[in-house]
Every structure is written in structure tokens, then in C-alpha cells.
Amino acid sequence: MKSKKLKSALSFLLCIVFFSTNVQAELSQDQLTAKNKGIELYNQFKAISATPQLKIAADAGDHEAQYYLGEAIRKNKKYMTPEALSAYEASALQGNIYSMIRLAGEKNDLCVAMGNCPKGRKEPGEWGRVAIDTAGVEAAKGSAEAMYLMFIVTGDDKWLEKSAEKGYAFAQYFLGVSYREGRGFFLLPSSRAEVVERLMKSSAEGGYPQGMLEYGAILAEKKDLQGFRFWNEKAAETGYATAIFGYGSNIGKESSEFGYTYDPIKSYALLHLLLELDGGGGMPDYVNYVLPNISDKMSPEQIEKAKKVSKEWKDSHPPLSFFPDKL
């Protein structure tokens, strides 16, 4: 019986490898633009607006767009709809491990509960096995991201550590937070703090915005305010909404405890830009609480100039994003 199941799993895995290497969608420029816009909107917590854009690329066969389409529909509806399930399955059949993981976790599907899924439909347990096999193959090739996904599907900490050691910036951040919250064993508290700092520094240098803010906070605790300012500004330049809010708020203070130079025009410009994030996350509420304190000290001419600076920033920097965890 075990042999039969193993053969079935191997055959299915080979089928996925075939699809992922031979049926990779080539998007037109319009389809690629729609995909990128859809992901941008999704990362701004605008799942409803993202859905039609993602659908354009998903219908063209792009597995990443199919995954994000499934995410957008599921999060908007707050449950796994047949349309979301279909998007995940189309993506998973092209080898997308994120979609496999989503399908592996879908235990509440009615056909699974009733034990009467259509012939050929894979149940969550089978998708879980395929996710492990597929991620394992990629991890063996040296993919640090696949090593992180092996941690997700197996729960084995060694994969998270390997991913961080291999340089996956998100894994470095995740492991650093985990250690800070008590994961792992360290003989001395100072040893734990040193490892957390090293991981956050690596994550920041690897380009992960939340890692930049965490490392900046560590430097602030050590009274390195120049380092704190540097990493907060770097994080803001990635488009990370939280960092832009913090940076913009700080330079709008006439006396900053972190040593920022007072710049009300740039402060207004950055905070005004965040008002676009009206899909979720409550950012406009935060901005509208802070912005009047800054604008009250500005002339109408300064405010007009700030609005132009806001547009210039938007045109010259990556799109605004909350950088939600992909899983």
C-alpha cells in the first residue's frame, strides 16, 4: 500500500515538474503590467481592486499571478471560495510551492470533509507531501527561499536556520524575531542579543524593509542615532509604508529625539502620499492624526510645494507597500 502511494506521489511530482518547465506562461506587456499592478494593490491591502488585474495574468497562465489571485479572493471573502481554490490549483500544477502550501492547509473544503472530491482532485495531505518533495528538490539546489518553505511545511527549525545562513533576508528577520521572543537555547542573554543583532543586520543589508527597521531599533538602543536614521530612511526608500510614516513624522518635528533635521515640506510630502493607502491597515487614520500638527506651521506655498515633492517621490521610488508576509 505504501509503495502504491509513493508511486502515485512520485508520478504526480513528475507531472508538476513537466508542467512547470514546459507550460510556463509568457505574458504580453499588457498582461505583465496588469500582474505587477495587481501585486502592487494586493501589497497595499487592496484585495478587491487587485483581483481583476491579477485575473488578467492568471488567465494567461502565470503561476505567480494565480497564487496572488487566490490570496486576494480568499482574503476578500474571508474563506476559500471555489474560484480561489481553482487559482491555487492551477498555480500549484505549475510547481508553485506557495500554492501547494495553501492547498495543503485547506482542511475545511466540503468535498474533503465528505470524502467525495472529484476524481483527480488532490486532497490536502497529498498537496502537503508534494510541497515537501518540490521544496526539497529546490532546497537541494541551494535555494534559500525553498529552505524557508521546507521549514514552513515540516516545522523543522534546521531549515529556517539553513535558509538564514544561506542569505534569505526574510528568514533572517523571522529567525531574529523568534530568537528575541525566546526560541532556541543560549547560555547567556548577551549571546542571544548578539545573534539577534547579527541576523537583523544581515536582513537589513539583504534588502528586507522590516529587517531594516528592526536593525535600526537595535542601533537606537545602543545610542547609535546616525545608524538608526540611516536604516529608517533606507526602509522608507523601499516604499515600506510603516517606515515612510515613521520617517515622515520624525522629520516633521522641530525637535527630534533621534536627531533628524527639521524638514516640514518633505514630511508633509511623505505623509500626504500615504493617504493613498485607503484599502486597509488604517494608515489614513494615523496620517490624519499627525499631518495637521505639521501643516499648521506651514504656509500655503509650502504645502503646494510639498504636494509636488510628494508626486516626485512617488514617481522616483518603488510603489507603496505594507510588505505582507507572502504566506
Results as ranks from 00 to 15, higher is better:
residue 212 M to N: 01
residue 243 A to V: 02
residue 193 A to G: 01
residue 104 A to V: 06
residue 93 L to R: 12
residue 122 K to W: 14
residue 22 N to C: 12
residue 55 K to F: 03
residue 81 T to F: 05
residue 172 Q to S: 08
residue 132 I to G: 14
residue 210 Q to M: 14
residue 316 S to V: 07
residue 241 A to P: 03
residue 108 N to G: 02
residue 263 D to M: 02
residue 125 G to S: 10
residue 269 A to L: 03
residue 179 Y to N: 15
residue 11 S to D: 15
residue 135 A to P: 02
residue 139 A to S: 15
residue 112 V to D: 02
residue 237 E to L: 09
residue 308 K to I: 13
residue 45 F to P: 02
residue 127 W to E: 00
residue 297 K to V: 07
residue 167 G to V: 04
residue 82 P to N: 01
residue 239 G to V: 07
residue 307 K to L: 10
residue 249 S to H: 04
residue 87 A to N: 01
residue 6 L to E: 15
residue 24 Q to E: 15
residue 236 A to P: 11
residue 124 P to R: 11
residue 201 K to Y: 05
residue 263 D to A: 01
residue 70 G to N: 02
residue 24 Q to R: 13
residue 35 K to L: 13
residue 56 I to E: 08
residue 56 I to S: 01
residue 251 I to E: 03
residue 247 Y to D: 06
residue 267 S to E: 02
residue 101 I to Y: 01
residue 268 Y to K: 02
residue 26 E to Y: 09
residue 276 E to R: 09
residue 327 L to R: 07
residue 45 F to T: 01
residue 224 D to W: 04
residue 164 A to R: 00
residue 148 Y to S: 01
residue 87 A to I: 02
residue 42 Y to W: 07
residue 211 G to E: 10
residue 96 N to L: 06
residue 320 L to T: 13
residue 29 Q to I: 13
residue 272 H to P: 00
residue 78 K to L: 04
residue 230 F to P: 04
residue 121 R to M: 14
residue 50 A to W: 06
residue 141 K to A: 13
residue 130 V to G: 13
residue 217 A to H: 05
residue 40 E to F: 06
residue 148 Y to I: 00
residue 311 K to L: 09
residue 97 I to A: 15
residue 74 R to Q: 12
residue 264 P to Y: 12
residue 92 A to Y: 12
residue 264 P to M: 06
residue 318 P to Q: 08
residue 308 K to H: 01
residue 235 A to V: 08
residue 129 R to P: 00
residue 28 S to F: 07
residue 285 D to K: 14
residue 121 R to F: 15
residue 150 M to I: 03
residue 44 Q to W: 05
residue 46 K to C: 09
residue 312 E to I: 07
residue 297 K to D: 07
residue 91 S to N: 04
residue 15 C to N: 14
residue 271 L to P: 10
residue 252 G to L: 04
residue 255 S to L: 08
residue 35 K to Y: 09
residue 119 K to G: 08
residue 279 G to V: 13
residue 308 K to P: 07
residue 228 F to R: 08
residue 195 V to F: 08
residue 20 S to V: 07
residue 168 Y to Q: 00
residue 143 S to G: 09
residue 242 T to A: 08
residue 235 A to I: 10
residue 154 T to M: 03
residue 151 F to Q: 00
residue 226 Q to K: 04
residue 179 Y to K: 10
residue 280 G to D: 10
residue 273 L to G: 00
residue 163 S to N: 07
residue 9 A to R: 13
residue 266 K to G: 03
residue 265 I to Y: 01
residue 179 Y to C: 08
residue 277 L to N: 12
residue 196 V to G: 01
residue 108 N to V: 05
residue 7 K to M: 12
residue 1 M to L: 15
residue 313 W to I: 05
residue 205 E to A: 06
residue 158 K to S: 09
residue 174 F to P: 00
residue 173 Y to H: 11
residue 146 A to F: 13
